[in-house]
Amino acid sequence: FSAWCGLVPKQHSSGGKSCLKGITKNGNKQLRTLILHGARAVVRYADKRQDKMGMWLRELIARRGKVKAVVALANKLCRIGWHLLSSGEQFNVNKAFA
């Protein structure tokens, strides 16, 4: 689902060497935009969250910066959403960001 939304890196590989670039921009542009806006809203208040998602986001922002953290969170939220829809499980933030 993340790949269909265009939230995975472009891959330029040749000769066994893998080179990953920015997001692919494939798929539905409007859906990708909405998911990124939602991720931006969550990252904005990451410092106030005291759960596993907040800790994960703060560590990611410190390592990679806010822009990459927004795209990484959007990708992760897409994958979580797809898993919840396909399996019928209930969302558990501690399991999702373990």
Rank of each mutant, 00 (worst) to 15 (best):
G15D: 10
S86I: 04
L77K: 12
T33M: 09
I35M: 13
G54Y: 06
H83S: 13
S2D: 06
A96D: 13
N28L: 03
A74F: 10
T24G: 02
G54V: 02
L31I: 10
G22N: 12
V8F: 04
G65V: 12
Q11E: 15
G22T: 11
N92E: 13
I61A: 11
Q50G: 12
F97L: 06
G22K: 07
S18Y: 11
A3G: 06
K95E: 12
R40S: 09
M55I: 14
P9N: 10
G15M: 12
S14M: 14
G27T: 01
R63P: 14
S14L: 10
R63K: 12
H83N: 03
K29W: 00
W82M: 05
N92L: 08
A72G: 04
Q11D: 04
R40C: 08
R40W: 07
I61R: 13
G54L: 04
V71D: 05
K17W: 07
S87T: 14
W82G: 03
K66P: 00
A62N: 10
I80K: 11
V8G: 04
I23D: 03
A74L: 04
G54P: 06
C19M: 15
G22C: 07
I35C: 04
V71H: 12
K29T: 13
A41Y: 01
W56F: 11
S86V: 05
R32A: 03
G88K: 11
M53Y: 05
N75I: 05
G88W: 01
P9G: 11
R64T: 12
C78R: 01
G38R: 05
A39D: 08
C19D: 10
A74N: 06
R79N: 06
V8W: 02
K29P: 11
K66T: 13
S13P: 13
M55C: 03
N94E: 15
S86F: 00
